[in-house]
Amino acid sequence: MTGVPLPEFDYMRPLTVDELSAILAKHKGEARLMAGGTDLIPLMRESVLRPKYVVDVKGVKELHGITTHDGGVTIGAAVTVNEIVESEIIRKKFTALWSAAKELSDQTLRSRATLAGNICNASPAADSCPSLLVLGAEVEVVGAHGKRKIPIAEFFKGVKRTALAQDEFVKAVHIPNQPAGAKSLYSKWKRSWGEDVALVGVAALVSGKKVRVAMSSVAPTPVLVPEIGNVFYGEGTLEEKIEKAAACVPGGICPINDVRCQAEYRTHMAAVLTKRVLRELLGVKK
């Protein structure tokens, strides 16, 4: 299959956000944006996608760089996953995203793959998304009719479907500062030691009594399990609450059977991972 050429297209490399906007407004459905290309290229190779124009966003300077400000951190759409892994601030303050970035695919693909690409591809298994959900990220979107910000919880509309209109693109992802003392983590369950798609991925954020848990690979989109939050305002020891949190998991997800594993196993492991991540964050030994 390696000798099969990709479908033909024109390659475009805009240098500014305005230029990129204009291309999208003009070509809409015929153009496909490429950040890292690590999802787009395989889809084109299988002829699932046959865009007339491939628009490489990595040439746009405004989309590069991780910037910190009073409100939090802003990650440009062209920032690679390896740049996130190398960011001290993301490692210390937004550990869930950092640990997800470290688990995303492998070292070589992370040199190309981007956070914005991971969310726009909208795979149910996307590693970065549970972390963005627990951290309350916002997606900055630019389109022909101006800018808007979409809370990450409203960004995913289904398997490989997002809230983006045809003329819109992601400019950056904003992650707000978390309360002092907040801790977060992502844990991925996969079949091999090396690169694999998550069988289940669980991210959690703990800040005093506030606990948020989100998951990948267990529903058509990455999902928050809000019921878990309520458990920690109730009565009981931490260990009892962690067990109660795990008991909320099956009701909050709807996994499928696929080539990687059965739904039943996913449900079981989602609860196990939830307990592991919460024990780690809450300092509960078992």
């Binding site: 290309g37 290229i41 490489d56 390896n82 070589t108 693909l109």
Partner: peptide
């Protein structure tokens, strides 16, 4: 200087 899979890049890039 970074390792990259050359099947995941267009020559144009």
């Amino acid at each position: 200087g970074r390792p990259v899979k050359s099947c995941m890049m267009f020559a144009a890039q």
